[in-house]
């Protein structure tokens, strides 16, 4: 067996072992953002899948660099050997490009299928299926509840169109319902990030960014702004977002409507047109 082949086989064995050990570890690792919605589940699965794909290539490159250098190393002062004269290997380079290209294609095809397939796209929340301008776009047909998320420096306000446009400073959602968020902003660009349900969508003034997902697991969660929006960007968060049972939600909504009633009688009913006019650019 030639020295080249011996080294290749040694590295191959190390690579297979490293890959298998790594793949096992990946299979038992918990991947965020967990399972509070079908979007979150789908993101966790994709993260795990990508890690499965990435690890063998990563460990292969590391094994190649470290192994060929250390295991195959010769005395720095040795005389040049015949293989030193090899200036490249087009077939090997072609094979390499082919393998990496295949992995990339796999990734892109899988990703594109996810984005274009209706069901899977539903699970991924459809961020971006919105309208530009001042009117609020439509929600997917199977939506159970719509929530308009209105960002401003430095807080989020939640409007519930089905409840007469009632507003709340804290997000409350019913479990086991398909929620469609309509995300917009009154001033600068913000981003609505609800990690537990895998929702992240920019809040851009004059734009309706739509994100739809089925929320599942009840609990109290954290929401924060994830696009730099000025001084108190870091404090634009809320630790008391809640996903509650359907009946608890109705109770809460009734209470909230009653509490808001004195104010709401003076306000126009919920409108699908929204015209934010920041004072600085008025007149």
């Amino acid at each position: 067996m030639s020295a080249n082949r011996r080294l290749a086989v040694t590295l191959g064995v190390i690579w297979v072992v490293a890959s298998l050990v790594g793949l096992f570890i990946i299979s038992v690792l918990p991947f965020p953002p967990a399972h509070a919605s079908d979007t979150a589940t789908s993101i966790s699965n994709t993260l795990r899948l990508l890690t499965y794909l990435a690890w063998p290539i990563f460990s292969g490159v590391i094994t190649g660099i470290v192994g060929s250098m250390l295991i195959g190393r010769r005395d720095p002062n040795a005389r040049p050997a015949s293989h030193d004269r090899i200036r490249g290997n087009p077939r090997l380079a072609g094979l390499w490009v082919g393998v990496i290209g295949f992995a990339v294609l796999l990734l892109a095809v899988f990703g594109t299928l996810t984005l274009t397939n209706e069901e899977a796209a539903d699970a991924l929340g459809l961020a971006g299926r919105g309208t530009s301008g001042t009117s609020v776009g439509s929600s997917p047909d199977n939506t159970d509840i719509e929530v308009q998320v209105i960002a401003q420096q430095w807080q989020f306000t939640y409007r519930y169109p089905a409840y007469g446009g009632m507003e709340s400073a804290h997000l409350v959602l019913p479990a086991d319902a398909r929620v469609t968020f309509h995300i917009t902003s009154l001033d600068v660009t913000h981003s609505f990030w609800f990690p537990a349900i895998g929702v992240k969508a920019d809040a851009v003034p004059n734009n309706d960014n739509v994100f739809s997902t089925r929320v599942a697991v009840m609990g109290t969660y954290r929401i924060q702004c994830s696009e730099l929006c000025g001084l108190w960007h870091g404090s634009m968060d809320d630790n008391s977002a809640q996903i509650v049972s359907g009946s608890d939600f109705s109770t809460w909504a009734k209470q909230q409507q009653a509490a808001d009633a004195p104010v709401m009688q003076y306000l126009p009913p919920y409108s699908h047109t929204y015209v934010p006019l920041p004072a600085a650019y008025g007149t």
Binding site: A3, N4, L7, V61, G64, I65, S68, M69, G72, R73, R74, D75, P76, N77, A78, A81, H83, G88, N89, L92, A93, W96, V97, I100, G101, V104, L107, A108, G111, T112
Partner: peptide
């Protein structure tokens, strides 16, 4: 797709490194 495709030419740098380090001194 285009972003993922950039990893193809980028990976070549690593291939060249492995090839150069192969049984080197």
């Amino acid at each position: 797709f285009s972003t993922e495709a950039i990893s193809i030419p980028t990976s070549i740098i690593f291939l060249v490194a492995i090839g150069t380090l192969w049984r080197c001194r």
